[in-house]
Computed example of a mutant assay.
Amino acid sequence: MSADAAAGPAPDWIARYLERLAAQRGYSAHTVAAYRRDLSAFSAFLDRHGRLLAEAGADDVRAFVAAEHRRGLSATTLKRRLSAVRGLYRFLQDEGVVEVHPAQDLRAPKGPRRLPETLDPEQMTSLLEHEDDGLLDMRDRALFELIYSSGLRLAEAVSLDLVGLDLASARVRVTGKGGKTRDLPVGRKACEALSDWLRVRGQLATAGEEAVFVGRRGTRLGARAVQARLRRRAVLAGLDTPVHPHMLRHAFASHLLESSGDLRAVQELLGHANISTTQIYTHLDFQHLAQVYDRAHPRARRRKVEDE
């Protein structure tokens, strides 16, 4: 198909592309609606500048992203809009509408990277050593000790089966993103809490249940229940910040990196495919150092007083 075939209204091609996303790629209605808004904005931009979809070049796409950036759109939205445009032009290439992909090598502007929320060692101690009261509290302590001890994702923790836990050698085997398996060390405190829980687990678990962590009904504990139990435990422990399970994984990474300085080891333990993902914890470590500096350095204290 030649470029002349795309001389009709651009929304026709956009509609066909969105139909393919929904029908063949299985995109959710929410994602398709977001892409529709993104591509409608791109189409309107081209119309304002007298450009057809099949005629647009890299400069046009770059100008569109820049205009949206000036409008104040977030880096996340800009990234999604550019992704929608890229996908549209891949579709047009497949259909023979265009030969050159105008957005292939373009990148959206980077926004400020949000640092993950975490807990300091004192807060972790308050959370984990809060007094247990019954089977569920024993289970919770074992679960949260394990997540913090080994840096588990919530999904890895709730999917853990008995066969994956080896307390004799203080190891746990989990399956993470992409089906990748990791063998991880388990700390002494976590081993003790897990041993206590496994001694009484049979009072809750149904016959044949393989999950390490079970709920009131004796079946595998769900992620939402873990989130609710952690919020409850944080309140009872007197923490004044909302706590969610991923904060325990963040605490594991930041505390380990702060003590060891071994970024590669932390990457392996977390199961990050790319070390750039792990490097965010170096920023957390710097924040801690900056706080220590501001508290302890004479010039820093003086500057703070003068600023007041």
Rank of each mutant, 00 (worst) to 15 (best):
E95C: 04
G151F: 01
S159V: 06
I147M: 15
R51Y: 00
D59Y: 02
G72Y: 03
K177A: 07
D137K: 05
D105R: 14
V163I: 11
S149I: 01
L53W: 13
M138H: 08
L115Q: 15
R48F: 03
R171I: 05
S169L: 07
A67T: 14
L143G: 03
L73Q: 06
T77S: 15
T76N: 14
L82H: 11
V85Q: 02
R81G: 02
T77D: 03
G96E: 12
V174F: 02
L165K: 04
S74K: 14
L92W: 09
G57H: 01
L127W: 10
A58L: 08
G72T: 03
S83C: 10
D94R: 15
V98P: 01
F144Y: 11
D132L: 06
M138P: 00
H130E: 14
E117T: 14
A58Q: 15
T175N: 03
G50P: 14
E95M: 11
S74P: 08
P112D: 12
R70T: 08
D132E: 13
D132S: 12
G111K: 11
L53G: 14
L165V: 12
D161T: 13
L78A: 06
S149R: 08
H130G: 05
V158K: 11
S159F: 01
E122T: 13
E117Q: 15
Y148E: 06
L136R: 12
E129A: 00
S150Q: 10
E129Q: 14
F144T: 05
A108H: 10
P102H: 04
V65Y: 08
M138T: 13
E55R: 12
R81S: 11
E117C: 06
E145T: 05
E145H: 06
S150W: 08
G151D: 06
G57A: 03
D59H: 13
A63K: 06
R114K: 15
R171N: 03
S83L: 10
K79G: 13
L52N: 12
L119F: 00
D94Q: 14
R90T: 12
A168M: 10
A58T: 15
P116K: 14
D120W: 08
H49C: 02
K110R: 15
H49N: 13
S169I: 04
D105N: 13
L162A: 09
K110F: 00
D60R: 11
A54N: 09
Y148M: 09
A75I: 09
E117V: 15
E156Y: 07
L152I: 03
E131N: 01
E156K: 06
D94E: 13
